[in-house]
Design a protein around this nucleic acid. Structure first.
Lengths: 202, 202
DNA sequence: GTCTATAATTAGATAGAC
DNA sequence: GTCTATCTAATTATAGAC
């Protein structure tokens, strides 16, 4: 963690790790707010209070920084874990609530960073696709076990991406300003139906 | 069209309007594929087979070109019109089918262009928000007339954005490679439920 | 209308002093 | 580790010849 105070003592271990952390923090903030293409290394350095050269010293390239920023936001995995803790019959509500509460906390979640970056950055697009495949589609499909499990999981992904984009990126009303509880009440059952609901006969 | 190069070499009249059209066509293609921030004026000019300076001659600025590219893709309004032609009890399927068939045709629809551009370009974000508010939310809400009409319309917007992003931008499987019919069968009833379905009692 | 040339700015990235 | 200085390349945009 980032204590050791604000001591600036070159003699002591003025561990560059602190600068590294500040850079990562600023990067997550700006990548989350303006996307990869809309964020400059210089802006990140300024926000972190360090020199632009340090960014390259620590992370090599801008893409390297993005990669580190995503992996360092490691409070997401536990959140995802909690989704799968509990009965299948209430998983819809847990998915929506977990998603919204996490996005609410900050824009620094990998999901927002990548969703903002994917449209103009091919590598971000690939990272987001892999993230969703690995963390959501596969786990949901395994949980269901039905023949159409993958498609049902895909429908959930549509809800997740749609909510993230509508509420946090494009900010469409009234989705953007509804309360989390209101959205959970609306989308929880919807997601539940995607996973365990009956498909109408053609 | 309404062109006659005054007294220019009629060896092969490249009436300015033709260049203008070629630029718009290339702009829609590239904005749709890489977003506003990911597309350069030079790339558009090259794709259109004209000089970069012509782009500015016709459209002033890059943003001006984006605006023109969006308004010129005017095969969308009729499609939206067709959604509202028909009964309210089958509108869900019409929304999904119209959306997918239009996106299927090409990446040049305003929805894809703006959805790709919004995350890194503030002005595109505003354009997309206004487009959705005006063309979808307002019209759907007016059609419903219920107290929670706006929220129901918002849920449909989540479906629309989620589908567009999952299928055409991030290309998540199996949503990306499912047939239009399959998706209509899955999401049609879902959208219908968003609009006219019963909300569960708490 | 079309193109050449270029201005003005900005980006990512590197070298090297301290 | 940190910063100054800079290189290189690409960008939007303009002026002006033909």
């Amino acid at each position: 963690m980032a204590e050791r105070g604000t001591h600036q003592r070159p003699g002591r271990w003025r561990s560059g790790a602190e600068s590294r952390q500040r850079i990562l923090q600023a990067a997550r903030e700006l990548f989350g707010r303006h996307g990869y293409g809309g964020t400059t290394v210089r802006a990140i350095a300024t926000a972190a209070g360090v020199d632009p050269a340090m960014v390259f010293y620590f992370f090599g390239t801008k893409q390297g920084l993005l990669g580190a920023a995503i992996e360092m936001s490691d409070n997401i995995p536990p959140a995802i874990e909690s989704i799968f803790t509990g009965g299948l019959d209430t998983i819809g509500e847990r998915i929506v609530r977990t998603l919204l509460e996490n996005l609410e906390k900050s824009d620094r979640t990998p999901l927002v960073m990548l969703t903002r970056s994917a449209p103009t950055d091919a590598q971000s697009e690939a990272l987001l696709r892999e993230f969703i495949d690995r963390e959501i589609t596969e786990r949901l499909a395994a949980l269901l076990g039905t023949p159409d499990a993958a498609l049902r999981a895909g429908m959930v992904n549509v809800q997740i991406l749609g909510l993230a984009v509508a509420r946090y990126i494009v900010r469409i009303e009234p989705i953007a300003s509804s309360s989390v509880d209101e959205l959970v009440a609306r989308f929880g059952p919807l997601v539940q139906h995607c996973l365990t609901g009956r498909t109408e006969p053609p």
